[in-house]
Design a protein around this nucleic acid. Structure first.
Lengths: 157, 157
DNA sequence: TATTGTTATACTCTATAACTATA
DNA sequence: TATAGTTATAGAGTATAACAATA
């Protein structure tokens, strides 16, 4: 493994600058996310789960995987959403061990309003031209090792 | 070229793509941060505070401001760092109400190793050329409304 | 036997309010 | 009176381990 990657990427002031900028983005993103969630009396975790559920009924275990936490934690989070009428548990006809958490109609509405108040990167990106946003997208994709998607699976609407 | 602000930024698929990429970055950043902290048996909050302290003794209240949390929370976090010998409390000679939290020598070493294991965006950025990283930096700066810093913004090459 | 979800437990982070010691 | 830090309290998220129901 003889490339000098470690050396350049670690000390390069330009790289450090970009890393710092990313840190700023992360901080701002989180701030705005928690703020938007709080506006709907939701915690961050609850908002994330509700966002998941709004895309379709999901087994508890799968929620845990998405949240990268232990399945036992999901029980409480869904409990709290359920007690507020935002989610409900259903049985999976295919496997009676599985419980599917699903957003209620109210839950879907809340998730929708939540998305609407997540202004991050919408306002800031408005300051960039279409060309610049394309460049930014491509650079971020390469940075993340993401394969440019042939067509982002239409989120349906 | 006029960019039609409000309209494009909200529905523009390109913008949505970039927003999604940023979400991915945020998720990955957090994952790596928590992982790096856990490697040193620290929680995320403890790691953040230790990082702050490693830059110099800091009043408890200022730590709370940086963490964007209530001052009462800082007490416990610093308690835990202190009980592990990573931080200590000092009195501020100028104002006897103030307590300065400071990293111990061990604390500074831990903070340094922590920084070292924060690989995020170092590895990925290595895949971009210097020119590309410059473009990325400038776009992120404009997106964040950051004033390019005088020292490192030398565009020359 | 293995898997899914839950419960029980303990710890950390969080906000709120009341307290203390300074200013 | 006002400010800095703490304590007390309660709620939420987290991991671990043990458990019931189902596969």
């Amino acid at each position: 493994m003889g490339n000098l990657r470690g050396m350049t990427s670690r000390t390069d002031p330009l790289t450090l600058e970009v890393v710092e900028l990313i840190g700023t983005i992360v901080a701002r993103y989180h701030e705005e996310y928690e703020e938007a969630a709080a506006k709907h009396a939701l915690t961050g975790a609850q908002a994330r789960v509700l966002g998941l559920l709004s895309r379709g009924p999901t087994p508890m275990r799968r929620i845990a995987q998405q949240l990268k936490c232990e399945p036992s934690n999901v029980t409480g989070i869904v409990d709290r959403l359920e007690s507020r009428g935002l989610a409900e548990r259903r049985l999976d006809p295919a496997d009676r061990r599985v419980k599917l958490a699903a957003a209620t109609e109210t839950g879907r509405e809340t998730a929708e309003r939540l998305r609407g108040s997540l202004d991050f990167a919408r306002e800031p990106l408005a300051g960039l031209s279409a060309d610049e946003r394309t460049v930014l997208r491509d650079l971020l994709q390469r940075m993340l090792g993401v394969t440019p998607q042939p067509e982002s699976s239409a989120p349906g609407h």
